[in-house]
Design a protein around this nucleic acid. Sequence first.
DNA 1: TTTATACTTAGCTAGATGGCTAAGTTTGAG
DNA 2: CTCAAACTTAGCCATCTAGCTAAGTATAAA
Lengths: 113, 113
Amino acid sequence: MAKFESQLDLHFAALADPTRRAILARLARGRASVSELAAPHEMALPSFMGHLRKLEAAGLVVTTKEGRVRHCELSPEAFAPAQDWLADQRAIWEGRLDRLDDYVTRLMKERKT
Amino acid sequence: MAKFESQLDLHFAALADPTRRAILARLARGRASVSELAAPHEMALPSFMGHLRKLEAAGLVVTTKEGRVRHCELSPEAFAPAQDWLADQRAIWEGRLDRLDDYVTRLMKERKT
DNA sequence: TTTATACTTAGCTAGATGGCTAAGTTTGAG
DNA sequence: CTCAAACTTAGCCATCTAGCTAAGTATAAA
């Protein structure tokens, strides 16, 4: 999985980890420094920073350094791309004209058995 | 990333790949056999099956074998868990913004007096 | 009954991921 | 000036991932 990874790839990949989702959930409640964020996670700091870097690469989190402290916050429209993609797929699925047809076909097969 | 992977982990991880998203987009338009699904992807069949297996493990796709053909379709509530998680986070985030807004508004009112 | 189709299983590889420790670097406090 | 805090960089390791080929199995068609 490399070369030309779309933003959506990075986005969903970033969300596919409980540590990273926990970071996002924390940041949804307000900005925090790296060490504040890291405190609840039993993990060495460099490992934790790795997660943070992925969130930033995915455009989910924005960080800024002030003095020796790095502050982190949710990117304003963080979840929009993932939400949009999911909503689009669901709309197509729900708008399908032949869904009823499929359903009836399956029902008839089941009755035969 | 292993041991006790939550369904949400599998869910988002499954979505983090363009081949798999393409499969889902295709299935949103109706059920298909493995080889129908595989045709547009320049990839050996076993590789392709790997993707399909992940989608199934994540609960996004359901497959059934009839004779020598395996049929695939979107799981009815496929996208719900991911959508719900994202919506929850966004709600928290937006609730926070509202509160900040309130705070600023109140502050400005106080200054006027 | 032979052959082709549609997967399926097995086993390999390069590269990514997620964790670690140890040793920097920069900045704020004393 | 010295020391501690808050990262940051470097480098190592065990898995996992996503791809491949080659060979196997089950079913449909001829």
